[in-house]
Design a protein around this nucleic acid. Structure first.
Lengths: 365, 365
DNA sequence: TTGAAAGCGCTAACAT
DNA sequence: ATGTTAGCGCTTTCAA
């Protein structure tokens, strides 16, 4: 047994004194093989450390897997544009990966559009679905229907509690909160409270938001118990942020603000306008406005969830699963990426571009 | 021309009324085809948007590419262990990638061992070399010899000036310095100087170190021109750091220290022992001691170059290049990763483990 | 200048 | 229960 020789099904057949058909049968547990020969063949297989030639296998199987990517319209936010970029990028390599991706876009403002996409996807009978279920109930319902049809589902960005997707790909929310607490504690004035701002709609739809708060507070309790903090739930408007922040600042000295969602920019705009001294603002996600305000210094810290890599990873995981039969871990957590002004360029050097070359992609909007 | 039909060499042959052999000749510019048929065939190819089937191609070519990975012994430092982890991980997927990786380890303390590895590698005639050329001259010499033998070289971690590897994979040193300056400025006491500490040996071998300093200083000049700073070159010993730091602290009030290399921990040990108040320490790389001191809080910030992903990327780039004939960009710069205590776990949840399962890997140490 | 045919390693249908 | 064989899409050799 030479170390560098690559053994094939033929070699095994010769050694075992059976035909290649038999080898194939034991390799795939197709039955109709006597226990004796089966054992013998299996012994040889493991002894020679046989590894099937993937190229040959997929050549003959020649199955074109298609997987559906259900995500938010990339024109609505840079965050979702990054998802789209990831999809584009990975599709370049799709023959390497052995599957094709069809993109379905829904509007972040419309549960209906999500549901409609879901219907279309199911009708197309994909071999897998990748989705960002930012609507909790609708996402759950789609997930259930996929289960019934035994279509594997990968969730990214947002996880739905009590579901068992093939894998969830995203960041650890609790840890994210802790990181932000550490950053603010590090840089904010010792005297002054911290404000935690939630966005009501997302609070309803994403259980992760509360995790971020829990993480944030747990850090304060552990490392900086004398720090006071307050929590507010706002709705998604400039007005709401302005009003609440005005009110908060009137009552208390605030030295740090943590916005638990991508709407960090509302607080950023407030700071840019009113320019109160000594307030450090940190929040989530590289959306257009957040990037701008990070550049102007009104936002100091952002946590990047790397949506681009999340989709890429999702597609690759499906490739591994469908083609190479590798079952992923139930969770794939990405590290918390801290973005400040000076490492922003490498993470995102382009603002959204409307892309007119959609021929290769199917969109449903 | 149906949109979803996949055309093959056979289809083209039929349409053009020639044999598949002819198609192959025009596809690969092998000549011996009349201009007329060549044109006709080319027209059909582009009209049908023909894409060769990679699986079939590599099946028949059946070339086993082997690439050599030249890196520092993973037992010497966690940083290099991460490189090794990356290599291990990517080798799991090596049949997917279509190449095998052989690892050659040299000692970080011995230029001789680097050279010897280089000799062995060249003797093995690999299809490509991935190296971390931490010895400038020796790395250059190996690079030149590869050039003469037209073996493509990918450099990671450290770049050698005036060379043109297939690609350099690493982080932007200038930007790294800027990021650290921003972090220290953000969190350090306004009153107090910054100290920039270099490690003499690495200063000689790696031009990147000066880039880090340049980035650091450029940020200070721009954003915080009133901040004074001093620069020291130390040798790689606890003693040197202790002596210099003692001396520096006697003369000046220091509120921030930037160590431009992985030896950040020497300064960290100093801080842990002498415990001077109000000094924020930041530096480079997730090496064992740095990780420990980040956990104890003596180091506040680390920049992670993600050596693990660097090797993985290197191998994947070779796969793309050798098999799919895609030429990479001359530089692949990773984003600057900021590591603080609370996002450390996700980046590195294990300390070095001595791995005894080396059967799959060739080592030359 | 062109065509025919073997074969890469494997799967699956069919034959025995 | 086991063997035989066609063919997946392509490259390459040899013949015409």
């Amino acid at each position: 047994m030479l170390k560098n020789k690559k053994y094939g099904i033929k070699d095994i057949a010769k050694i075992a004194n059976v035909s290649i058909g038999t080898i194939d049968r034991v390799l795939h547990n197709r039955g109709r093989v006597s226990d004796l020969t089966k054992q013998k063949v299996e012994e040889i297989i493991s002894r020679l450390n046989y590894k099937p030639n993937i190229m040959a296998r997929s050549l003959v199987i020649n199955k074109k897997y298609t997987i559906a990517l259900l995500t938010v319209d990339y024109n609505e936010e840079y965050y979702w544009h990054q998802v789209y970029e990831g999809a584009q990028n990975i599709m370049t390599k799709s023959d390497k990966l052995g599957l094709s991706v069809e993109v379905y876009l829904y509007s972040i403002k419309s549960k209906k559009s999500f549901e409609e996409c879901g219907r279309k996807i199911l009708k197309s009978k994909p071999d897998g679905i990748i989705m960002a279920p930012i609507f909790l109930n609708e996402g759950l319902s789609l997930y259930e229907r996929c289960r019934n049809l035994s279509i594997p589902v990968i969730m990214f960005d947002t996880n739905i509690p009590d579901t068992k997707p093939l894998t969830f790909i995203g960041t650890d929310s609790y840890q994210g909160g802790r990181v932000m607490a550490e950053l603010l504690t590090l840089s904010a004035d010792k005297n002054g409270k911290f404000a935690i701002l939630h966005f009501d709609l997302e609070l309803d739809n994403s259980p992760q938001i509360m995790e971020r708060q829990r993480g944030f507070i747990s850090y304060l309790n552990e490392k900086s118990p004398e720090r006071e903090y307050l929590v507010r739930v706002l709705n998604n408007s400039r007005h709401s942020y302005d009003r609440h922040l005005d009110e908060i600042l009137k009552k208390d000295k605030i030295s740090g603000i943590f916005v638990t969602t991508a709407t960090t920019y509302y607080a950023g705009f407030f700071l840019r306008e009113k320019n109160p001294k000594g307030i450090i603002l940190g929040g989530y996600d590289l959306v257009d406005n957040n990037i701008r305000l990070l550049r102007t210094g009104n936002i100091r810290f952002l946590i990047n969830q790397n949506p681009r890599r999340q989709v890429e990873q999702s597609v690759m995981t499906f490739s591994d699963f469908l083609i190479y039969k590798q079952t992923p871990n139930p969770k794939t957590l990405f590290p918390i990426e801290i973005i400040i002004r000076n490492n922003l360029p490498a993470h995102s050097n382009k603002l959204p571009i409307v892309n007119h070359h959609l021929d290769t992609i199917k969109s449903t909007t």
